[in-house]
């Protein structure tokens, strides 16, 4: 479970996040939607302990990311929007490196790496250096690394960018599977169709403020999510 309470963050004069509050429950797939520069990545980086925030609280399964960062990070995995990984490492070494950080047992990592590498059709590429990969392949490696230690909370920034259609389909299946197990999925996206079909709840952020949050059905009503989003964007 993720609890975000009155989180604010400034970059000089600009308020990137302004008293953002919402919760993501266990077993839920939660979409975070907003235009470019709305504050999505800033919030995601704050949740993951990558970026410090000025005010408010972020709790991961009851623990504060500010006061217990390591305990929080042990429960979650982060997939960045731009998969800038360690280019000099072989893919398998990188995934093992991430597993080592989480103290993942050899049995668990072997099972998961084999499973997800096969699912993303990349099992014959793992011995190659990451620098030789395309954007989409790097994204797949970042996803495998994130999934291989079986996180309870999965946080992803634009996870579908660069993935091929089959990988997007498989990724959605994995997300549903983790949520079914009671895990928490929180991701940002621009692809409203995906959010509409996949998310249990969404939050729409605009200029650092949450303008709408709730059940997908409730927010959408009779309209499409795209229409709701564009209407909210148009309203000043």
């Amino acid at each position: 479970m993720i609890v975000i309470k009155n989180v604010s963050k400034r970059f000089g004069e600009k308020k990137a996040l302004d008293k953002v509050s919402f919760e993501v429950k266990d077993g839920e797939i939660f979409g975070f939607i907003g235009h470019n520069g709305a504050g999505k990545t800033t919030l995601i980086k704050s949740i993951c302990g990558i970026m410090d925030f000025d005010e408010g609280r972020i709790l991961i399964n009851g623990k504060s990311i500010k006061t217990e960062p390591i305990a929080c990070k042990r429960e979650m995995a982060y997939v960045p929007d731009d998969p800038e990984l360690y280019e000099d490492m072989k893919a398998i070494s990188f995934i093992n490196f991430v597993c080592d950080m989480y103290d993942t047992s050899e049995e668990v990592r072997e099972r998961n790496i084999k499973r997800y590498a096969k699912m993303f059709e990349i099992e014959n590429e793992l011995q190659n250096e990451i620098r030789s990969f395309s954007h989409g392949m790097k994204q797949k490696i970042a996803l495998i690394a994130a999934l291989s230690h079986e996180p309870k909370v999965l946080i992803m920034d634009e996870p579908f960018v660069g993935l091929d259609p089959k990988a997007i389909f498989d990724m959605k299946e994995v997300m549903r599977e983790i949520a079914k197990r009671g895990g928490t999925i929180f991701f940002s996206t621009h692809i409203l169709d995906v959010a509409e079909k996949l998310c249990d709840r969404v939050a729409i952020v605009k200029n650092g403020q949450i303008v709408e949050v709730g059940d997908m059905k409730k927010i959408r009503g009779d309209k499409s999510l795209e229409k709701v989003f564009l209407e909210l964007e148009a309203n000043e």
Partner: peptide, 9 residues
Amino acid sequence: NMLKSLPIS
């Protein structure tokens, strides 16, 4: 950023 998201102090 990715390194900072991992559970290492």
